[in-house]
Design a protein around this nucleic acid. Structure first.
Length: 288
DNA sequence: ACTCAGGTATTAC
DNA sequence: GTAATACCTGAG
């Protein structure tokens, strides 16, 4: 396949660091020139920002403009969203100023499920390296600018992988979870195509929770960060618990605050934009 | 050597 | 239903 290029000018709410380091994805890496390269679906893309230009280059299955538009959520009005959230209170406004360039990526459902199962009780460098090893071993190679990249393996490509093989890739206790979840999806115990078409977020969540290694936090991440794009969910991890307690609940011991309480508060304050609010708050609390 | 990290599953009240 | 506990691994 041939390299394509696409340039966007004067686009608001698009900062590479904010997008790729806000915790939603694991396969984008910074280069020496400050651009980022990543693999998604069967595409390899490099994104660079220069002044008011965003330059997309890479190998795409389809037309790069269409690919970029879908993946980077370009049809959504983030300025309007940020304005609505900023009016809620000073705290969220501050966090939005910090992460003003965040966009929620349109990531493939299957990859998001597996990636966030791997993320459980794990740290980001190790999550990333596990996913790279998994892709290198079971995905497809794509060569771009003299470098080799690997697509995220499909469920079919993981069909015959044993628990021991997962363990040898460094998955640790998550080995059996990957094995069982892959099997359940291949057997259509959970039908991903059906999930994509189901308008009922709670029903989708119930289905996701039946997968091995998927608990409430991972399920919410899948709903928010995959192509399901449910902005009303509010994934609660250690950082979100911390920031919500610091800002609003102010309990002495943040670990004593129940998830229910946080969820209720998030829903009351942020409504159907809770997921975005979570993302700004998370990124701000974690990086600022 | 030892702690800790984007939680989940299991077991026990 | 809600609360404690174990859990692979490797980087710092």
């Amino acid at each position: 396949m041939q390299e394509q290029e696409y340039i966007l000018e004067n686009l608001d709410s698009f900062e590479l660091k904010d997008i790729f380091d806000c915790g939603q994805c694991f396969r984008w890496n910074i280069r020496k020139d400050g651009s980022y390269t990543g693999v998604f679906r069967n595409n390899v893309l490099n994104v660079k920002k220069e002044n008011n230009k965003i330059i997309f280059k890479g190998i795409c299955e389809e037309e790069i403009q269409k690919t970029v538009k879908e993946y980077f959520d370009l049809d959504r009005d983030y300025n309007e969203i940020k304005e609505r959230l900023s009016n809620i209170d000073k705290n969220i406004k501050t966090s939005i100023q910090y992460g003003q360039g965040i966009r929620i990526l349109n990531q493939e459902l299957w990859e998001t499920i597996i990636s966030f199962i791997i993320s459980a009780n794990n740290n980001i460098p190790r999550i990333k390296s596990i996913i790279e090893r998994l892709s290198k071993k079971y995905g497809n190679e794509i060569e771009y600018q003299g470098e080799k990249y690997y697509t995220f393996p499909t469920a079919m490509e993981l069909k015959n992988v044993s628990i021991e093989e997962y363990r040898s890739l460094g998955l640790g206790f998550r080995d059996i979870r990957l094995y069982e979840t892959t099997k359940m999806i291949l057997d259509k115990k959970v039908d991903l195509n059906e999930l994509k078409e189901n308008p009922n977020t709670n029903e989708i969540k119930e289905k996701l929770l039946t997968l091995s290694g998927v608990g409430p936090k991972v399920a919410d991440c899948i709903l928010l960060f995959s192509e399901l794009k449910r902005f009303e969910v509010f994934p609660i991890d250690v950082w979100v618990r911390r920031v919500m307690n610091d800002l609003y609940i102010k309990q002495e011991d943040e670990n004593k605050v129940s998830k229910k309480q946080i969820e209720k508060l998030a829903n009351e304050k942020f409504g159907n934009l809770a997921g975005l609010a979570q993302q700004y708050l998370f990124y701000w609390r974690r990086e600022a």
